[in-house]
């Protein structure tokens, strides 16, 4: 652990800390939800450790509860996790020069929040020790927080007030990540198109509307960049 690792760890941890608060109610809600479909505490925590992806966990619970065919459950999880292919491609240069076991660990730990808050500074930094510290410390923190508060939900299921809309904290956390990203016009276009696309296509089977919305948003952002670029060039 050299100074560069520590500096990266400090910057990553404190940048990610406020956002990780939004994870707490989400983890609790997920813990309660897993118990509510009839998983034992051991099975619920097993799922929480093995899957470690809130959206895929919450999305597959209704299917597990109704005894849906295994291929449908796994396909749904895959679709809900598809966005990580995009994150993985964007993040890959961060792990240049790292051994395989660190890449495997990082693949297990990579979550939306760490990507959204830290990817830009991770990709810019030339020192691989700094990058490793800045990625792994907030990621492990996020994992521990997720497991601890899911356990609170698993053990406290039935005692929690279910009418406090606590799950909305997760949406607020997503918004807190999104808003700073939309400072440029193409990014704002991508967000608006992605959001409206997901709403309008919500009727598509297997939650494919979410994937379709993301693709629409990406293409809209790219198109906006393309069309605004020549004008910018002409005026300067």
């Amino acid at each position: 652990m050299n100074d560069s690792f520590k500096a990266g760890a400090r910057e990553g941890f404190f940048a990610f800390l406020p956002l990780s608060v939004g994870l707490v109610p989400w983890a609790i809600v997920t813990g309660v939800a897993m118990r509510s479909i009839g998983l034992s505490p051991l099975e619920a925590m097993g799922m929480n450790v093995i899957v470690f992806a809130g959206t895929a966990q919450l999305g597959t619970l209704p299917l597990i509860a109704t005894g849906a065919p295994i291929w449908l459950i796994v396909l749904t999880a895959l679709v809900l996790n598809l966005r990580f292919v995009i994150f993985s491609a964007a993040m890959a240069p961060v792990f240049d020069g790292q051994p395989l076991q660190r890449r495997l660990l990082s693949s297990y730990l990579l979550v939306d929040g760490v990507f959204a808050i830290l990817s830009e500074r991770l990709l810019k930094h030339p020192d691989k020790h700094w990058r490793w510290g800045c990625f792994i410390v907030p990621s492990v923190w996020c994992w521990a927080l997720w497991q601890a508060f899911a356990l609170v939900g698993v053990l406290g299921a039935g005692v929690m007030p279910s009418d406090w809309s606590l799950e909305f904290m997760a949406t607020i956390a997503l918004m807190v990540m999104l808003i700073p990203m939309t400072a440029t016009r193409p990014m704002l276009v991508a967000a608006i198109a992605g959001g409206l696309g997901a709403v309008l296509l919500r009727g598509m089977p297997l939650k494919l509307g979410l994937i379709a919305g993301i693709v629409i948003g990406i293409l809209a952002g790219f198109a906006a960049e393309h069309w605004s670029a020549p004008r910018k060039g002409a005026s300067s």
């Binding site: 992605g194 919305g213 629409i216 809209a220």
Partner: peptide, 9 residues
């Protein structure tokens, strides 16, 4: 544009 589009979706 993927993160912004995904978060909004």
């Amino acid at each position: 544009y993927a993160p912004a589009a995904a978060l909004a979706a």
